[in-house]
Design a protein around this nucleic acid. Structure first.
Lengths: 106, 106
DNA sequence: TAATAATGCAACTATATAGTTGCCTTTTTA
DNA sequence: TAAAAAGGCAACTATATAGTTGCATTATTA
């Protein structure tokens, strides 16, 4: 289930910070996306690997440095998944509960 | 950062299955939302607690059993957060990159 | 009221995860 | 070409997490 890996990847403050940096500014290198995080380079590198394994990010080695690119489509998949949950909720019990609530107000 | 907890909560196959069950059908009890998961009752209960701590779910004890209610608003917060990332991406480098790509095609 | 159903609490194990340090390689650049 | 910059790989530690088992509690129901 790839969406589980996506949510797991987003479910860490360091990684979410990285994703926010990438959404705000590109291009980023491993260095720039990892700077000022109060963890070591290798610690940050592990987080980047998790993002890459979840395909939320692509690493592009070029010469001495490695570019980090955010995969917007993957974010979209997460949004679509949540929207699907909401749609089902709306369709079934949500509608019923709203009906019952309204009925009880009388 | 509450959205980190939300994503962390969704980033596990058992918990995502529970959330899907809740989105498809309500009401659910701890028992019903935990049945057939190939883990013990207590294992499932721990997952439910994580969902409750993330405020994705509310536990409502009533007599002998405890109702489990999905908090739709929390899902919505996740969707909105992702949409915000996408919006920033679209506004900044995404637009620039598309421009450069188009330019290179000539 | 005795049995059963639904659940809670606590202790325990095993594995995964976050983070570190040390050292090596490759590419720029002064 | 020597130094610096960016990064890879591996081993290690500590803590968090998933999952278990055992036992106790509270509500129903036969």
């Amino acid at each position: 289930m790839p969406v589980v890996e996506l949510f797991r990847a987003l479910g860490d403050p360091t990684r979410l910070e990285m994703v926010q940096r990438l959404s705000r500014r590109e291009p980023h290198t491993i260095k720039s996306v990892s700077s000022g995080l109060s963890i070591t380079r290798q610690g940050a590198r592990k987080h980047l690997q998790i993002l890459a394994d979840a395909e939320l990010v692509t690493l592009c080695p070029e010469g001495r440095e490695t570019g980090v690119v955010l995969e917007r489509d993957k974010l979209e998949q997460g949004k679509i998944f949540i929207a699907g949950l909401e749609r089902q909720w709306d369709a079934r019990l949500g509608a019923l509960r709203r009906y019952v609530d309204k009925d009880l107000e009388k």
